[in-house]
């Protein structure tokens, strides 16, 4: 019997098996750590997105209360998705609740433009907030320039052209054509192209295919909203939100007027001037002025 040979063979096999064992265990350990690292990255990304969302929410609250101001905020390079009811960063969503916000459905880039205007009818109902990115290109066609330029905030990227034939593509991720009181032609270019036709009391949107039915509104704040709103669905939704707020504020103002009226005796000038129904009265501005002249509490 060749005992030495058998021993050698056993030693070689044992060495090989040891290495196989080491390889298997090594791969298991590696996979374990890679799994942990991936899971940790996911958690970290979600946590980051939630923190950024929280901070952005605070910034939006601040921006909403300072009327007529535009600001440019530096943000991390994350896509912000915006709808009528919520905004989302990296899959984490925050509700907008009662806030009336207009903006494109996707805001890309490292900067965010925030602007707000108050909506008054003539008493202030709420502040509208407008969000966009300097990377979105707004093209005012024809008369739209004279009618809208003074309402638009600084920091946005916009230009004026006489007709849509004069448009040159600059590879922006999003382009919005703005027409005044006509449903103009949209150039056939690649990318996210949309259009809006605005006049003093209604707006119609085009997503590149067809024009939507007109949506009625009142006030300049809505005109600006139509420039920034992504489409007719978002605009319609925000109009409804604003109308709901108007109903609530009007009811409260009416209750206040009735309470003030009750503090005066019959025949007093203030009582007579305060005897109005806000939903049916059409010249609130002059009535408010009359109340001021008589040193009575004003409606607004």
């Amino acid at each position: 019997m060749n005992i030495q040979g058998t021993r050698n063979k056993r030693g070689i096999i044992e060495a090989q098996l040891t290495w196989v064992f080491i390889l298997i265990v090594g791969v298991i350990i590696l996979l374990f750590f890679v799994g942990i690292a991936q899971k940790q990255k996911q958690i970290s990304d979600t946590k980051n997105a939630a923190e950024i969302l929280q901070q952005l929410d605070g910034i939006l609250t601040g921006a909403e209360v300072s009327t007529g101001t535009a600001s440019l905020v530096n943000i991390p390079k994350l896509d912000i998705e915006l709808t009528c009811d919520a905004f989302t960063i990296e899959g984490v969503t925050k509700q907008l609740d009662a806030r009336v916000v207009f903006g494109p459905d996707l805001i890309q880039g490292r900067q965010l433009v925030m602007y707000n205007l108050d909506w008054s009818v003539p008493y202030r109902v709420t502040n509208f907030l407008y969000l966009t990115s300097p990377n979105v290109r707004y093209v005012l066609v024809g008369e739209a320039e004279q009618e809208l330029e003074s309402l638009l905030p600084e920091y946005i990227t916009y230009e004026s052209i006489p007709t849509s034939d004069n448009f040159t593509d600059k590879k922006n991720y999003k382009v919005r054509f703005v027409f005044w009181d006509k449903q103009g032609n949209i150039p056939d270019v690649r990318g996210d192209i949309s259009a809006v036709s605005i006049n003093d009391n209604s707006a119609s949107f085009n997503n590149g295919l067809t024009w939507s039915p007109s949506i009625a509104y009142e006030g300049d704040a809505f005109k600006v909203g139509a420039v920034f709103a992504e489409n007719s669905e978002q605009f319609n939704c925000t109009v409804k939100k604003a109308e709901e707020k108007k109903r609530i504020v009007t009811e409260l103002y009416q209750d206040r007027i009735n309470l003030l009226k009750s503090k005066y005796s019959a025949g007093e000038a203030c009582r007579e001037l305060l005897d109005i129904n806000l939903t049916a009265f059409y010249d609130l501005e002059s009535r408010n002025y009359d109340l001021q002249l008589q040193s009575c509490p004003t409606i607004y």
């Binding site: 929410d57 605070g58 209360v65 008493y123 504020v249 001021q292 004003t298 607004y300």
Partner: peptide, 23 residues
């Protein structure tokens, strides 16, 4: 903690509560 400040900020700017003097 920031939330209570945010709520206060929104509250002080509500047209439902804000006062007006001389319109």
């Amino acid at each position: 903690a920031r939330r209570s400040i945010d709520v206060a900020q929104v509250l002080t700017n509500l047209p439902e509560l804000q006062c007006s003097v001389g319109a």
